Simulated assay, not measured.
Amino acid sequence: MHNKDSFYRYGKDRDGYQKYLCRKCNHQFAPDRPMSKKVPKYPRCPVCGKATFLHHDYEYYSNYRCCDKKCNHSVFVPKPNNILPASMSKLVGKNDFKRMRYPVHIIVTALSMFYLGKNSFRNIALILRVAHNVKVSHTTISNWCKKFAPFFNNLFGTYANVRF
């Protein structure tokens, strides 16, 4: 059994509560600290089954790492309540023109020539070079069509029932 002389003050914890250390078993504790009701439940490592710790907490997901230094596996857990309603639609792919190298009107022109004019990617690249003096690769135009196809499909679905 522990007596009064086997404990001594061991500094303060991060919230300012006095910590004590047992000289016999080296157990640290803060008796004045209130018990927290909310204990985070971290997932187990899917590789080794050991405990994980929170490595990064992002807006839409949390990154947990395995406590075993040999394993060091990362686990990404999405936060379902932080997903915006717009991202939960059937729209997949890029839906804005941010961070694009070329201006929006060049991209829209190329996409409209492909989807409405039924031109090839190489032909569209040639037309853009001659008409707009913009050198765009046919592979870049192909990537634009892959990225923005769901966006234009969604726009077509919303405006297909509108009569002018």
Rank of each mutant, 00 (worst) to 15 (best):
N63Q: 11
R99P: 00
M100W: 03
T139S: 14
V47W: 03
L84W: 00
C45G: 03
L128V: 05
P43K: 09
I106Q: 06
S120R: 08
L126H: 13
L54Q: 03
P85H: 00
C48R: 06
N72W: 04
H105L: 05
R33P: 08
K38I: 11
V39E: 04
C25W: 05
H27M: 08
N133Q: 13
F152N: 08
Y64E: 06
K147S: 15
M88C: 08
N143L: 11
N82Q: 11
K70T: 07
Y102V: 02
Y58W: 01
I107F: 04
V108Y: 06
S62M: 10
H138P: 03
M113F: 08
C71V: 09
V47K: 12
V92T: 09
F151N: 06
R44P: 00
W144Y: 06
K79E: 02
D32I: 01
P40V: 15
C66R: 14
K37C: 04
I83H: 11
H56I: 12
V130E: 15
V77I: 13
Y102W: 05
R122E: 07
K90Q: 12
C45K: 01
L116A: 14
S62R: 09
Y115D: 04
F148R: 01
M100D: 04
K118R: 13
N26H: 12
R23A: 14
C48P: 01
F148G: 03
Q28K: 14
K98V: 04
K135T: 10
F114D: 02
T158Q: 14
Y64K: 09
K90R: 06
V47T: 12
S89W: 01
C45W: 06
Q28P: 03
M113P: 00
R99C: 10
I106P: 00
C25F: 02
L84P: 02
S62V: 05
N161R: 07
I107P: 09
R44N: 06
A131L: 15
F121R: 07
H27F: 14
P46D: 04
F164N: 01
R122D: 10
G157P: 00
I124S: 02
P85I: 05
N153M: 06
V130S: 11
P85A: 05
I124Q: 03
N161L: 06
